[in-house]
Amino acid sequence: MLNRDCRTPPSLAVVIPFYNEQDSVAALLAEIDRALAGQIDYELIAVDDGSTDDTAAVLSLAAGRVAALRVVRLPQNCGQSAALANGIHAARAPLIATLDGDGQNPPADIARLVDAYREQAHAGRCLVVGWRRQRNDSALRRLSSRVANGLRGALLGDGCPDTGCGLKVFARDDFLALPRFRHMHRFLPALFVRAGTQVISVPVAHRPRRAGRSKYGVGNRLWTGLLDMAGVYWLQRRACRIEYEVDDV
C-alpha cells in the first residue's frame, strides 16, 4: 500500500527501510523533517519491510503528522535490498538519499551528501557514500566491517572505505539501471563503478543505536557476503556498457 500525493515531484526522496523498528521510527522521521525542512524540497519514503512489531502502526500515525511522508508496505519481510528497491521505485524525485532505520546516522548529514553530489554531478554520474570514520558499534562489528571493506575493496576495486554505510545519495535512474539481487545494497559502490559511475566518500557522524537491536551479525553476513561478492566479481567481468554517438542527418 502506498500513500500517494499528486503535487509537483520534489527534488529529493529520502528512502528508509524499517524492519521491527517501532521504537526508532517516530524520532527518526521527526529528526529528518527538522534537518531538511526549509532547505530542500523533499519527500520521505518509509518502507515497512513486513515488520512483526508495531512499526506499521507507528508509521500510520506518522503519516498524519509529517506532510512529506509516503509509506510503502511490503506484505512480508523481503530484506533490506528489496525494501530499498521498492522505496526507490515508488519515489517521485530524481535524486535519492538512503538512510538506515536504526537512527545511527544523523539525518543532518543528508544535506552535506546532497551538496557533494551536486558539486560533482557536472562532471558525470556519481554516487556519494557516507564514511563512518568513528563508528559507535561493538569492537566485533567494527573489526568485521574493517575486514569486509578491505576484502571488498581489494577484490572489487570499488574505491570505497565504508560501503556498508546506509547513508548514500545517487540518481534514481542510475539505481534502477543496476542489476537487482538480494543483498545488493552491500555492494552499491561496486555496482555503480561497474556502470561507469564515480564514487565519492564523505565523512559522516555515527552514533550508538538508541533503541531496538541490529538485524545483522557476523554469522548471518559472512557466508552470504562471500557468495554475493563472488557474484558481483563475475558481474564486473561480464559487464557490457552501451556507449555510442548518434549522427543526426
Rank of each mutant, 00 (worst) to 15 (best):
Ala35Gln: 08
Ile16Lys: 09
Val15Glu: 12
Leu29Asn: 04
Asp48Tyr: 13
Asp33Gln: 14
Thr52Gln: 15
Gln22Tyr: 11
Glu31Arg: 03
Asp41Trp: 02
Leu44Tyr: 06
Ala27Gln: 13
Ile45Asn: 07
Asp41Pro: 10
Gln39Pro: 00
Leu28Pro: 05
Leu29Asp: 14
Ser51Pro: 04
Leu36Ser: 14
Glu21Ile: 02
Ala30Asn: 14
Tyr19Gln: 14
Asn20Cys: 15
Val15Leu: 03
Ile45Arg: 08
Glu31Phe: 00
Asp33Glu: 15
Glu31Met: 03
Leu29Lys: 02
Phe18Glu: 14
Asp33Lys: 11
Asn20Leu: 05
Ile32Asn: 02
Pro17Trp: 03
Val47His: 11
Ala27Glu: 08
Ala26His: 13
Val47Met: 02
Val14Leu: 04
Gln39Ser: 15
Ile45Leu: 11
Ala35Cys: 14
Asp49Trp: 06
Ala37Gln: 08
Ile16Asn: 05
Val14Phe: 04
Leu28Asp: 07
Leu28Ser: 00
Val47Asn: 03
Ala46Val: 07
Ala37Glu: 13
Thr52Pro: 06
Ala13Asn: 04
Ala13Trp: 08
Ala27Cys: 10
Leu29Gln: 11
Asp33Tyr: 02
Ser51Val: 03
Thr52Leu: 12
Ile45Pro: 13
Val47Ala: 10
Asn20Ala: 15
Val47Cys: 02
Ala27Gly: 01
Gly38Val: 12
Val15Gly: 12
Val47Phe: 01
Gly38Asp: 10
Tyr19Gly: 12
Ile40Tyr: 08
Ala37Met: 06
Leu28Gln: 12
Leu29Ile: 00
Leu36Thr: 13
Arg34Cys: 10
Val47Gln: 12
Val14Asp: 06
Leu28Tyr: 07
Val25Ile: 12
Ile32Met: 07
Ile32Ala: 03
Glu43Val: 04
Ala26Phe: 05
Leu28Cys: 13
Ile32Lys: 00
Asp48Ser: 15
Glu21Met: 01
Ile16Trp: 01
Glu21Cys: 12
Leu28His: 07
Leu28Asn: 01
Tyr42Gln: 07
Ser24Glu: 15
Val47Tyr: 10
Ile45Val: 15
Ile40Thr: 10
Ala30Tyr: 06
Gln22Ala: 15
Asp23Met: 00
Thr52Asn: 00
Pro17Glu: 03
Val14Thr: 08
Phe18Thr: 02
Ala46Arg: 09
Gly38Thr: 14
Ala35Pro: 05
Ala30Ile: 11
Ala30Arg: 02
Gln22Trp: 06
Leu29Val: 11
Ser51Gln: 05
Asp48His: 09
Asn20Phe: 11
Asn20Asp: 14
Glu43Gln: 15
Asp49Ala: 07
Ser24His: 02
Gln39Trp: 09
Ala13Gln: 12
Pro17Tyr: 01
Glu21Leu: 00
Ile16Ser: 12
Ile32Trp: 02
Leu36Val: 11
Ala46Cys: 08
Glu43Cys: 06
